[in-house]
Design a protein around this nucleic acid. Structure first.
Lengths: 133, 133
DNA sequence: ATATTAAAGACTCTTAATGTCTGTAATTTG
DNA sequence: CAAATTACAGACATTAAGAGTCTTTAATAT
């Protein structure tokens, strides 16, 4: 069981966009180059983020992607949900309801989610920025 | 990202073995029937549990599997590690060390593991037993 | 000896993720 | 208006992992 590569790319892209001064748009080419990916592939990841409302896209020349105006506080969990979906890590297909094992697994997953929901991308972005100086 | 079916089978099998009076051995046929699986498939799951030292196997007639004598307190995490391995859920293949994003993801995973390590199979087994009465 | 059982390995099938390629629509620039 | 740039959508191919089956071998009890 592993998080997808797409999730990793998405997280790094989001942090990068947050560090863009003035919230200016960045094209997929620049974003792809930074992570050594093909633009067409990263494009699919970015489309997912846009559909989730985490970023805004503007087509056409001088277009690109930028952090959504309406979403200033984006957590790790937001990004993960946008890419991986919101299905549970564990499903007991044996018992139909109230499986005790499933209950434990779900609770553990909640603990992980709580942590991911409490971590905001902006904090990581600022930390990365100050480290670079 | 999802936990494998094998992990689900393993957890249910372990609970079942814990409820066996006197810690007597159970053959793979009975265990497979209970979960509607083929014995050959479940056998591979059981072999993993045995190699991890969680259960003991005795070949030959009247053989089978039983909870390991030396391991009375088996946690959910023990079983998961036996089946899924101990690799991290998240690996940042972009940065080589000290990736801030990876740090967050690892911490969240730790929170989940802490919960899974604190839950013992024997407690679930006893709860299931009392529910049945 | 024979029946029973675990163990190991080769093998197939399915599914999901990864990634590429092509074409289309929208927007800016000249 | 024309051309260049860019996001978007969908079809397609490739790869990797999981799920599951089958066959053979080794060990144990009766």
């Amino acid at each position: 069981m592993r998080y997808s590569n797409a999730t990793n790319y998405a997280l790094h892209t989001m942090v990068h966009l947050m560090l863009k001064p003035g919230g200016s748009s960045v094209g997929v080419q620049e974003l792809a180059e930074m992570q050594h990916l093909s633009p067409t592939y990263l494009s699919k990841v970015l489309t997912k983020l846009a559909k989730a409302g985490l970023i805004e896209s503007t087509p056409g020349a001088k277009g690109g992607y930028k952090i959504s105006r309406t979403k200033h506080e984006i957590s790790f969990l937001d990004v993960i949900h946008a890419i991986e979906g919101e299905t549970s890590l564990f499903d007991c297909s044996i018992h139909h309801e109230g499986c005790l094992i499933e209950n434990v697994m779900r609770q553990a997953e909640e603990n992980m989610k709580d942590e991911l929901a409490s971590k905001l991308l902006i904090d990581i972005a600022k930390e990365a920025e100050s480290n670079q100086k």
